[in-house]
Design a protein around this nucleic acid. Structure first.
Lengths: 239, 239, 239, 239
DNA sequence: AATGAATGAGGCTTCATTCAT
DNA sequence: TATGAATGAAGCCTCATTCAT
């Protein structure tokens, strides 16, 4: 039986995942301890590009530079590999933002600006950006992914951003908007940017779009302006 | 002769699609002329739910209430059905918004507010909302979809919204933002709402999210506020 | 139930066949009494061209100018149609040669020359030539065809030609060859000519072959010369 | 890498065919290098028996002693397998006769006698005899086969035999016949013998036919006698 | 550990045949 | 009679997974 990679049901990795590299410090690219990561990277690229069902496991192995059978020494099935891809990538990012935000000193506005223009910009540029497409594409086929993603990504992230906005509203820095909506106004375009990068944006002759990082900055400013103002009509519409 | 589903390469429908039912009297079912639409509806649901590759053509047929072979009387392959699904749904919507906007009288702000809270809200509630997920998921596997979507949806839509914003900027109603970015700030969250509805949002125990229509209204107001203001920092960030 | 067309096990038609035209004299091409023959003609062409298994029954119907379902009003299945094609065509030809030969007056040589250059030449030019390919192709899949063909074609034909040769041998006109072999020497090339016409010969850029009718004449003369001579070496080889 | 079955467009094999086993040690079976040949052998038998379209690829695999999927490791499709069957078998035979004839010393008559009674007799007894049926049956469905067969078999073979006859005619050993016709007179019955073996001849209760090898000898003598003589009547018939 | 040949379940598509009109 | 829409069994081929080397 292959390296069975026990199922963890806790936050860091809901799914089966390979044993942590026994020597996490020494990982030469061609060495076997790097395999799990190489496989995950290859899988992320391919799953995000073609979809899980349309990706052959042999392709993943090939892109990772190993033979078909080798994949099964590390992950018991294609599906477990998918789960590993998602949990591994996102878990580490969540840890990263949380630390980033906790370490921050300054106004709510400055913090939000920072989180998006610094941290999210990096996510956008990294392979992690592909995970959003993967999640959106595959959640409905794999309920475990939904549970994991909600618990490990959506909740911490909305909590994080939500608390900042909340604080701003309470301090009078922001107008009294629906906080959950404000979070969506900030986050949704960021995710869409990632999705676009891996869908239409990856198709040949790109239309002239605003440059992503510039858009991130402009969008954050736009929303911050809006937040500082008084969104009266919404309140009116609700009434 | 079967409803031959010819290939149109012009704007209205890039892909094979059956001619409109000659007898628009929409009888319950069992009527031959209703088949193409029934198949498209079934296919949209399933492709959006499970993905194109993971949906068996027999499932589509079953959901449309016909046998496996019947599907092939109307569409020559699963792939052509996919293209028909996308082009048929989006083509009609694009025509709809354009007419909607052209018929509108009023300020830029009012027009934008209207387009999103009226028209987009309806799209969100309709099955068409699923097409966005489908496009994002499948463009990279089917280049024709990319071409069609860009030409028939992205371009007209950004042109439409862009022109409204542009007019606002020129008239001094809006601050001098990057118009393309403003369009993205408005549209991206709308698309995300649709994507969410058909991905995480469709998974069992929904998190407490802001109610979609309320969010649309708040988001539009937020951005309009922002647009009216002076997005100085962006300019500064670019410098 | 379709015009069941009883199964005749006697010589004229071993297989199920449609009722003989009720008015064999009056047959307008578009009239329904002509259907069975039109279907048989279409089927012969297509079966010979593409093979039985590779020919769709709808194609046969189309070439006969009727709809798919109509075929089944005349023949209960594709297989029965095949049998009808073979038996109908060959039966009439066998009757024809036999009458031809019986009516003949003259030397064995003259009779053989005549049978091949007159009668075979006409068969070669007629659609019946395709039946040989069909029989060779399909006998092993349909044992009934083998039985029919042997009884109705091979035996009468070899008997006919064999008796002529036999007579020549006994009268001293021909050398004492193996009569069955002489028949094969005469008949095999004729059949090959038909097979070639419907296989390689039907493919685009024909090689320069001897003109078929000229070949028939030359071949018959060649063999007749040989028969008049003394095939000593064969006798020697057998001994 | 699987025995990749490259496509050769040159004379020896127009179609995809696997490279010759690198390890000619013919172990019983279960040896990977033997697969291509085993599949070709199985395919030849079945295609010749039932026809290409009527043979299921799984049957071929089963007769070769492997599973369905294994076939596709060696040939990309059933059609490519067909082409491989034909080209592989015939290519080697053509090489064989040519060498045989070139090595021969003796009169034209002796050479012809030899080629047919020695070489052709062996072909008749070998599985290659089935290829003729296959070619006749399938050429019209696969144009590539026609091109290959004409170039690689018909032309070399008629050239070979034709040159011998030609020489005989020029030296006065033979009467001035149409050489192409003489070749047909010699070759056609040989091919028919092969066709018969795999069609009617393979059906249960064989009629009493002359024994094939004896027929070959008698036929060759018959034709040689005829060639030595003066085919005057043909000339007369043409005039 | 790594490989890749082999397997066979499963999906797409075709087409003989039926049957309501 | 004639039609052609509908059916579903059956065939080709793919690919996740196994396992002997």
């Amino acid at each position: 039986m292959p390296t069975q990679a026990g199922t963890l049901l806790t936050s860091q990795s809901l799914f089966r995942c390979p044993p942590p590299s026994s020597h996490p410090t020494r990982r030469a690219s061609a060495a076997k301890e790097a395999r799990p990561q190489e496989l995950i990277d290859a899988a992320l690229e391919l799953f995000a590009e073609k979809g899980f069902a349309a990706t052959r496991s042999e392709e993943v192995a090939a892109r990772a530079g190993v033979a078909k059978g080798t994949l099964y020494l590390y992950y018991p099935s294609k599906e477990e590999l998918l789960k590993a891809v998602i949990s591994q990538r996102l878990s580490s990012e969540i840890v990263a933002v949380t630390e980033y935000a906790n370490a921050f000193q300054g106004s709510c506005e400055a913090l939000l600006r920072d989180v998006f223009t610094e941290w999210w910009s990096r996510v956008f540029d990294s392979p992690t950006s592909a995970v959003f497409k993967l999640v959106i594409t595959e959640v409905r086929n794999f309920p475990e992914i939904a549970a994991f993603y909600r618990a490990e990504v959506v909740e911490p992230a909305t909590a994080l951003v939500g608390e900042i906005v909340e604080r701003g509203v309470r301090s009078g820095e922001f107008a009294p908007v629906d906080v959950r909506g404000a979070v969506m106004s900030l986050v949704f375009p960021m995710i869409m940017l990632c999705l676009h990068k891996h869908s239409l944006g990856a198709c040949a002759p790109a239309t002239d779009m605003m440059e992503p990082h510039a858009f991130i900055r402009q969008h954050v400013e736009l929303v911050l302006h809006g937040l500082r103002a008084h969104p009266t009509s919404t309140a009116g519409a609700d009434a």
